[in-house]
Amino acid sequence: MSTKSKGLAVLQGKCPQCREGHLFTHGAYNLKNFMKTRTHCEVCNVRFEKEPRFFDGAMYISYAFSVGLFLVSAFIIYAFFHPVSENVYLIAIISEVFLLYPLMFRYARIFYLYIFGGLKYKSELERTENN
């Protein structure tokens, strides 16, 4: 029986209902397949996508991540390296986006599923009683 916390399940990209099954089929830096999301949990068989194009709403969370990353980067560069040219800001931010995009994409989907997916945690005992 899994006793994982919700926070740990989110960090590991696990199913919101059982907190055991993986949400994604491949690793974050498998650049060919990092976007592939499972349709169902391999442990509890719950469907992740409640409707067609369900995860389109995750782009707003991804946008918030990007804005936060830009602001933090700009603040750090300004606070510790000022004065620098605008090119330093551009190079830093573009480099960060390329390095962190797979993680931002995944966590935007994970957060969106946990917030708007309507799935509640069920222990293994609760899942077996319902079947």
Rank of each mutant, 00 (worst) to 15 (best):
D56Y: 14
D56H: 12
D56G: 05
G57A: 11
G57W: 10
G57N: 09
G57V: 11
G57D: 05
A58N: 03
A58W: 03
A58C: 12
A58E: 02
A58D: 01
A58Q: 04
M59W: 07
M59S: 08
Y60K: 04
Y60M: 07
Y60G: 08
I61G: 11
I61T: 06
I61S: 04
S62P: 00
S62K: 02
S62D: 03
Y63W: 12
Y63N: 02
Y63A: 06
A64I: 11
A64L: 13
A64T: 08
A64D: 00
A64C: 10
A64N: 01
F65V: 04
F65I: 06
S66K: 00
S66R: 00
V67W: 08
V67N: 05
V67Q: 05
V67M: 10
V67H: 06
G68L: 10
G68M: 08
G68W: 07
G68A: 13
G68T: 10
G68D: 06
G68R: 07
L69T: 11
F70I: 15
F70L: 14
F70H: 07
L71P: 00
L71A: 13
V72A: 15
V72L: 15
S73D: 09
S73H: 08
S73I: 07
A74M: 12
A74L: 10
A74W: 12
F75G: 04
F75I: 14
I76F: 15
I77R: 06
I77N: 05
I77L: 14
I77C: 07
I77A: 06
I77H: 07
Y78K: 08
Y78W: 12
A79L: 12
A79M: 09
A79G: 01
A79P: 00
A79E: 13
F80H: 09
F80W: 13
F80A: 11
F80L: 13
F81V: 01
F81S: 06
F81R: 05
F81M: 11
F81Q: 06
H82Q: 10
H82Y: 14
H82G: 00
H82C: 01
H82I: 00
H82L: 03
H82N: 13
H82P: 00
P83V: 09
P83A: 07
V84T: 12
V84Y: 09
V84R: 10
V84C: 06
V84I: 14
S85H: 07
S85A: 10
E86N: 09
E86G: 11
E86C: 00
E86T: 04
N87R: 09
V88S: 01
V88L: 09
V88K: 02
V88R: 02
Y89M: 03
Y89G: 01
Y89W: 08
Y89H: 08
Y89D: 00
Y89K: 02
Y89F: 15
L90A: 14
L90R: 12
L90K: 10
I91C: 02
I91V: 15
I91L: 14
I91F: 13
A92D: 05
A92H: 05
A92Y: 08
A92S: 12
I93F: 08
I93H: 02
I93R: 02
I94L: 15
I94A: 15
I94V: 15
I94M: 14
I94C: 14
I94Q: 01
S95H: 05
S95I: 06
E96F: 15
E96S: 10
V97L: 13
